[in-house]
Design a protein around this nucleic acid. Sequence first.
DNA 1: GAGCACTGC
Length: 753
Amino acid sequence: MSYDNPYTRAPPVKNAASSSLGASNPLHGWLPRKVYAKQVREAMDGDVNPFTQQPLSESYKKILQARKKLPVFAQMEEFLKMFSENQIIVMVGETGSGKTTQIPQFVCFSDLPHTKGKMIACTQPRRVAAMSVAKRVADEMDVQLGKQVGYSIRFEDMTESGTTFMKYMTDGMLLREAMNDPELSRYSTIILDEAHERTLSTDILMGLLKALAKRRSDLKIIVMSATLDALKFQKYFSVSTDGTPAPLFKVPGRTHPVEVFYTQEPEPDYVEAAIRTVLMIHRAEDPGDILLFLTGEEEIEDACRKIKLEADDLMNQDPDSVGPLVCIPLYSSLPPQQQQRIFDPAPPARTPDGPRGRKVVVSTNIAETSLTIDGIVYVVDPGFSKQKVYNPRIRVESLLVSPISKASAQQRAGRAGRTRPGKCFRLYTEKDFMTELEEQTHPEILRSNLANTVLELVKLGITDLVRFDYVDAPAPETLMRALELLNFLAALDDDGKLTHLGSIMAEFPLDPQMAKMLIVSPEFRCSNEVLTIVAMLSVPNVWIRPPNQRKEADAAKAMLTVPEGDHLTLLNVFNNYMQNKHDKNWAWNNYLSVRALVQAENVRSQLLRIMERFELDLVSTDDQRKLYIGVRQALCCGFFMQVAHKEGEKGAYLTVKDNQVVALHPSCGLETQPEWAIYHEFVLTTKPYIRTVTDVKPEWLLEFAPQYFDMSAFPDGETKRALVRVQSKRARKFEVANGNSKPSDRPVKKARK
DNA sequence: GAGCACTGC
């Protein structure tokens, strides 16, 4: 042993199981966090499951043999020593090292969380990963999933209180837990996996955990990442004031080499070049499947058509040397059944001795992290992806086709080497790779609207948002924009303190505008309807519009459209879906996505539970006219900062205050162009559009958002003149009717003009 | 008269 004998340092901790079973418990006498690899190996090789006292199964023993071959297994001793001696560890492990499954188990053996009523958490950016890894680890530990080993994701808590001590979960879920228990007192060790992906939640968790580690000396933290980011995290989690980096634990991967090729000259048309490269591989390279990265659905479907045509041509011209090629599109909005096609085997040769078939998967970034396809030998990387960008000046998030980072290019190349040595064709020059590509993709926190995040942080008790210890600090303007919005919504007071309303808003997994709208909706007697609308706005687009059936799809949509606004149309769609549940084909016949509608049902019931918790009543009325007006008014209470005013007769709109020229999105179902329109999102595609739009009355805006529509602080222009006209008209009316009473003092329910 | 990179609560 190269470190002190741990037995001399601390008394044994009472082992819950050992009290009754005594020495038959393999963990008897073990000291938490003072455990040797030798002990662990003996326990693993024994006949009794140390965590359940049950006999270990044959399948356990079989899996154990495979686990022992993982690179990380050879480093158990080194890991346990580092874990014993440090509070925070940064760990790098390439793909295939086994870190996600093995390290948490090593921690279980060392930390013995079950003996102290604690848990080990291991966070993942994605739900499927949390679920599938938990399943795998439950098998490896020979326990039932949901007992000692479980997972926790939105809509599904697969854990058992008091039994589960190893919990895989989404990073967002741990953040939610932190909002109600800032000390994260249920956990003795927290492992942040895939930290290099830098999701918003992971970034916030890193900030929280760094501070928490100082308060809770008993808490251990492991940050797992890809190699390139390790030093940054080591420095960030520096343990002492002199800046000594946190210790690094390194595990080699188990992948095959990938040969990388670059183009001689930059390619002016990357889609064309990509198609050409795919066909070149098909004609000239050894058998093996191809993965091509493109940026979006349309580009992918288009490329698939072209590849198919050209490949068929090639095969017909030269059937003796060119085999069949099957082209499979892959992007997230594809139905799961079609996504499964990526796992189909390559097509067989057309004749017994003919050339072998090949499969090409044409994918978005989804194949870079979320999905792995075995058998890929060739990767074609044009070097672009759609990325979210946020412009705080005009408060707009949009998707832009942008060059990828070096880290991303490396990840893409790695996809070729999972089963055997592969090749990666980069459709840019080596010089461009070296000089033009950024090292890392900018973390999400630098590219997002932070309204949600800021509300979460305030709820977490972070008072000084600007000086919070971020791994990468967002632009001050982005924070200001978020604070401003939350202040207008009355979630934060003028000192930036959380209001009672704000603390309820933070409990809803919704954007603050939607949370506000939902919370006020009982006052408008329409919370039942607003709840539905908010759920529908939280799921992917429900409308399906197949390229060859556009007319039919549009006609079906017209049947469900409510002329006063798209929000009401969403309500109508959901209600019709619920009424027609007996008819399995209803959604399909109406060109609607069943998947999205089922998701909306799920979200709706989750939100309803939260409403019940805060005693927000579910109310409605039979008078549809009143109901629709109530919904539109509630909408104004949340989205008053997203209003556009029609300018002139040509259909041009200007956003209120920001004065952006926008057009109604063609998907908009409004009967006429209203003078004042509230919109759910601003999208920047071929030109600036506002999407999901509802007709509102200017009086409502003045009434329900007086601070925002304070004319003394309003930019001059046609919008202001129109609002001032409305205001003076109202004032005259109220003077005539009520003497001096100011409109804003009137109760909400009498607000209708 | 157009889209929906990808996640997550």
